[in-house]
Every structure is written in C-alpha cells, then in structure tokens.
Simulated scan of single mutants.
Amino acid sequence: MPQQEAVGVIQTLGFPSILAAADAMVKGGRVTIVFFDKAESGQFMVVIRGGISEVKPAMEDGLAAAENTFGGKVMTHYIVPNPPDNIVAVLPIEYSDKVAEFRS
C-alpha cells in the first residue's frame, strides 16, 4: 500500500518570510515544494507535498521560520492530509516534471 500523502500551504506577507519558510520546510522533513506564487497585496504562498508524518513537522519549521524573519507575518496556513484525486487533478499541487528531481 502506498504511503498516504499530505499537502501543506503557507501564505505570508513579504518574500523574505516565504523564502525562509520554504527553506525550513524542505530541511525539516522529506517534502517537495510543488507550487509557489504571488498571492495578493504583497503576499506569497508555497505548497509542499510529502508523507503525512513528514508534512506536519516541515510545516511547523516553516511557520516558525516565517514568523522569525524580520517583518515576516504568516497570513494563513493549512494541511490537507490525503487529498482526494479530484483535488490533486484540479489544483496546482501535483508533482510535476519540474520538481521530479527534488522529490523526496
């Protein structure tokens, strides 16, 4: 049986804090960044995927790093354990060829 996966999303105010969050997340768990984009009004978001047991500590590390970045502010965050196939197919959270070499 394949390992169940989760999706984690962090949205911050300002680029330095999302960069710090992304760095901390990939160092804090066996996760892969699958999406990054500007959100709105100077906000940025990053999305990770990985095993459920890896996403939670990676998110905790990312949230702490974002909050500890000068001027950083976490606007929102969320973890979706074991997203259904229809969500993965529609939202930009699928593993792509672009991130395949970094997949944990």
Rank of each mutant, 00 (worst) to 15 (best):
E5R: 09
T69G: 03
D37H: 09
S53Y: 08
A64N: 05
V88T: 13
A89M: 14
F44Q: 02
K73Y: 09
D97Q: 07
S17T: 03
F35I: 00
V26H: 05
L19S: 12
L19Q: 11
E101W: 04
V46Y: 06
Q11E: 15
T12C: 07
P57I: 04
G29M: 08
A39I: 15
D23Y: 00
F35D: 11
S104E: 13
E54M: 02
F102C: 01
G14I: 00
A64G: 01
G50H: 04
E101C: 03
M75T: 10
V99P: 00
A21H: 04
R49S: 10
L91I: 05
Q4G: 10
R30I: 00
Q3W: 04
E67C: 04
K27Y: 07
M1T: 11
T12P: 01
T12I: 03
P81N: 14
G62K: 15
V99T: 14
E54K: 05
M75L: 10
P84I: 13
F35C: 03
V46D: 00
F44L: 02
P2F: 09
N86M: 07
V88A: 10
V74A: 08
G71S: 06
D61V: 02
S17A: 15
T12Q: 04
A22Q: 09
V31Y: 12
V80M: 13
Y78F: 14
A65W: 00
T76S: 12
M25Q: 09
I93N: 07
V34I: 11
V26M: 08
A89N: 15
K27N: 11
P81E: 12
M75P: 02
M59R: 07
G72Y: 03
F35G: 02
F36P: 00
P84R: 14
F35A: 08
K98R: 14
M1Q: 12
A24Q: 05
Q3R: 13
I18V: 14
A22P: 00
A65G: 01
V26F: 05
P83K: 07
Y95R: 13
G50Y: 04
V88Q: 09
F44C: 03
P2T: 15
I48W: 08
V90A: 09
K38R: 13
P81K: 12
V31H: 11
V47H: 11
R30K: 13
Y78H: 15
T32Y: 10
V80N: 03
G62M: 15
V26E: 12
A58N: 04
K27W: 04
P57D: 02
M75C: 10
E94C: 12
F35S: 11
K56E: 12
N68W: 03
D37I: 10
A100L: 09
S41F: 09
F35E: 06
L13N: 06
V31N: 11
K38F: 12
A20H: 04
F102K: 02
M59A: 10
A64V: 04
E101F: 05
V74S: 07
M25Y: 05
I48V: 15
S53A: 09
P83W: 01
G29E: 11
V7H: 03
G71P: 04
A21Y: 02
V55N: 02
A64R: 13
F44G: 01
A6H: 02
D61Q: 07
S104M: 10
V7N: 02
G50M: 03
D23K: 03
I10C: 01
M25F: 06
P83Y: 01
Y78G: 15
E5I: 09
V90L: 08
M75H: 08
E60R: 15
F70S: 12
